[in-house]
Nucleic acid binder design. Structure first.
Lengths: 237, 237
DNA sequence: ACCTGAACACCGTTCAAGT
DNA sequence: ACCTGAACACCGTTCAAGT
């Protein structure tokens, strides 16, 4: 692979777990997840593919490394602000959730990894969950309810990350179809008309159709376990 | 591959799209998604792998076939009952959503396929969406709100399907870790204690921890856009 | 301990040849 | 139109050899 380096152990380690995550993220950003192969990651680092196996057990473990790095991109700064009493818990969780969804919309192949792997392998993910648990406790959520509320929010966020990646035409039905779908067709037309007026041109998410479902759902889930804040305006619908 | 059959076109087609989906589901049920390869599907049908390419463009298109077959396993019978006025829309959607989640918890690798592929390629999925749109219209949801409410529910269902597959120990943190996570640890302990009393032994879902987040979240999302039914008891928390 | 380089058992997919 | 069978360009992973 590398024609300049002799065989055998180099005087200084060429590969580290941090450098692997870094190289992987570079490839993901530039070429996408389909191109994320052991060979490409190794090439990006200037070593042979087998060199990676001195630092990770297999590709799944490598993806956990990437997951943890991606987790650190989530904006959890308002969670601290909420603990300091500077913003409401409701608002802090809304901003956090939106950032979480946006980050994993770009990295949706990792959702399966996070959802199926013990968090303990991803220290920065653990840190985020710890902060979240603290915020919910601070907000008065009873102890046994903290984890199920976090999981509830996360489930919605993960699903919404997928939805944000959906093509705009996902609910488009060709006219010539042999089945009649009048309700679906008119529902889509009505929504499209409403959207084209406002949200499409600003398209906050990748998919403008993803905005309302996420915003409305998030507000409903938060309202369910957070006490209403007096003087705060209710989420606009 | 098959040593008994001569080359060339057989008198009767050996492969059809229906048979492909059938063979794929058989493999998924018995060996799981990791083992779902073109070669194995072909082998199950007694043909060579390349024979499949006369019926599907590529593996992704094959997965859409599977998706559509799996969609048909979702229990949508109560949606009809709701339209007939036999049960409340709320209850019908709850049963539908639970079935949907259970089915795709078993088939979570398909979630990415559904979420990223136009529904028009999956006729049975279209049928389900049409029925859903009709039910929401029947319940008085305004036209432009029907599709965003469906997507909102679906996002939560997909995320919950992943969560149902999570290992029980996903939030377990080893004692010897170098980071302190007191809030997360006590939140987990409190929930575990509450759960072990009741839900663990009956474990409706694969993962008993998935039950409360799903039930509570679903109720909150439904309550947000369905008018309260007088005389119906509110969802127990 | 940590690299190289060859090798292995698979993947999905293509395509000429055949009826 | 629809199959076979050989082939291709990859995959992730293993392991002896080397320092």
């Amino acid at each position: 692979m590398n024609f300049l380096r002799a065989k055998g152990r180099p005087s200084k380690a060429l590969v580290t777990r941090e450098k692997i995550a870094e190289a992987a993220l570079k490839i993901i950003d530039k070429q996408g997840y389909e191109k994320l192969t052991m060979a490409r990651i190794a090439r990006e680092m200037g070593v042979g593919p087998s060199a990676l196996y001195n630092h990770v057990e297999n590709k799944h473990e490598l993806l956990i490394l990437v997951e943890d790095a991606v987790m650190a991109q989530v904006d959890a700064s308002l969670l601290d602000a909420a603990l300091a009493g500077e913003v409401s818990v409701r608002y802090a969780l809304e901003v956090w959730a939106r950032s979480y969804r946006d980050v994993f919309a770009r990295h949706y192949p990792l959702v399966e990894v996070i959802a199926s792997t013990p968090v303990s392998g991803a220290p920065r993910a653990v840190k985020m969950y710890e902060k979240l648990a603290e915020v919910l406790a601070f907000a008065g959520v009873e102890s046994a309810q903290i984890l199920p509320r976090i999981i509830m929010l996360e489930s919605f966020i993960y699903g919404s990350a997928f939805d944000a990646n959906a093509p705009q035409e996902i609910f488009e039905i060709p006219e010539d179809g042999d089945v009649e779908v009048p309700y679906l067709r008119s529902a889509r037309a009505a929504w499209l008309e409403k959207l084209s007026a406002a949200a499409i041109k600003e398209h906050k998410a990748a998919n403008p159709f993803a905005e309302d479902p996420f915003q409305t759902g998030l507000a409903a889930l938060l309202a369910d376990f957070l006490p209403a804040v007096p003087g705060e305006q209710p989420p606009s619908k």
